[in-house]
């Protein structure tokens, strides 16, 4: 049994630029353009630890490497899960991977959702589109430690009914009596009898105590902007709001310069930021 386990300390010792090889366990279709990749360490016995919110650099042999947030359960160490949208050459190549294929992995990198800091508080998760993927590990953690938190609210917006991620799990979570889970779509096509409209619409009336809430947000920047404003309108302090940011990334360790966001490096200072720390620059265009 291998004891390969990535901790931050060990990452410093190992060369962070060198990938480790993982094997594809399965490729699951989520939506027409999104799929989930389960990876296991090469020898089958490795363990992989990460904190909710962190990401990996995934390399497809000869094609290239992209940053992908980890979207599995942080308590599961044997399998590393990524939900990926096929939007470029590398991610499209990943969609065509088969069980047994090998993928290069560097990571985990980056900051985490503040699930410890939020103990004893209400948790409000607001996500849009593929933004649910990087938040799912935090939600798993909260579910596994349900008694550590007060009210738990998950608000999720998707483009259409067919773009809803993790549909079965959402149904399951919606059925729980101690969770408030709302799903909405921007555009209703077909037989959808659920909510239509933007995800921010739930914020004014969701059940949470603004003064004792930790809010976790991930989605397109415009969606996050409106979400933050709605939370602030409810009385949530910007220091209690956490967002996950995205920028171009080549190295994930602060060398390549691509992910700079003001004085921050998304790769090592983020991707998860306390909003009060980036509030001054969040609205600056083309920063």
């Amino acid at each position: 049994m291998s004891t390969l386990e990535f901790t931050k300390e060990q990452m410093v010792l190992a060369d962070p630029m060198l990938p480790t090889w993982f094997r594809v366990q399965c490729v699951r279709r989520e939506t027409h353009d999104t799929f989930t990749l389960d990876l296991a360490c090469q020898d089958g016995g490795g363990r992989f630890s990460f904190a909710p919110g962190q990401f990996n650099m995934l390399y497809v042999f000869g094609v290239g490497e992209v940053p992908i947030s980890i979207s599995g359960d942080p308590a599961t160490k044997e399998i590393v899960v990524h939900t990926i949208r096929a939007v470029g050459a590398v991610t499209r190549a990943m969609r065509n991977l088969k069980r047994g294929d090998q993928v290069g992995v560097r990571g985990p990198f980056g900051s985490a959702w503040p699930v410890k800091e939020a103990v004893g508080r209400d948790i409000v998760i607001v996500t849009g589109g593929i933004g649910l993927a990087p938040l799912r590990p935090a939600f798993y953690h909260v579910l596994a430690h349900r008694n550590d938190y007060n009210r738990v609210v998950l608000l999720y917006g998707a483009r259409t009914r067919d773009d809803i991620l993790y549909r079965d799990e959402l149904k399951l979570w919606r059925g729980e009596l101690d969770l408030e889970v709302e799903v909405t779509v921007d555009s209703s096509v077909g037989r959808w009898r659920g909510n239509v409209g933007v995800v921010t619409k739930f914020i004014p009336r969701a059940e949470f105590d603004p003064g004792n809430t930790t809010a976790l947000i991930c989605g397109p920047e415009v969606m996050m902007r409106f979400t933050i404003q709605a939370l602030v309108d409810r009385g949530v302090e910007t220091r209690d709001i956490h967002v996950s940011m995205e920028r171009n990334m080549k190295c994930a360790v602060g060398f390549c310069g691509h992910c700079q966001y003001g004085s921050k490096f998304i790769c090592k200072d983020g991707p998860v930021f306390r909003f009060s720390e980036i509030e001054d620059i969040f609205g600056i265009r083309e920063l």
């Binding site: 390399y59 042999f61 000869g62 094609v63 290239g64 490497e65 080549k250 190295c251 060398f255 390549c256 310069g257 691509h258 700079q260």
Partner: peptide, 26 residues
Amino acid sequence: CFCSTVEDVTDLSGDNAERWRRWDSC
């Protein structure tokens, strides 16, 4: 200035690949 990009290249057989780091510019 330290910004760089990476390029992943393969040979014609597709069985040998390399990663190169090159200077890049903002």
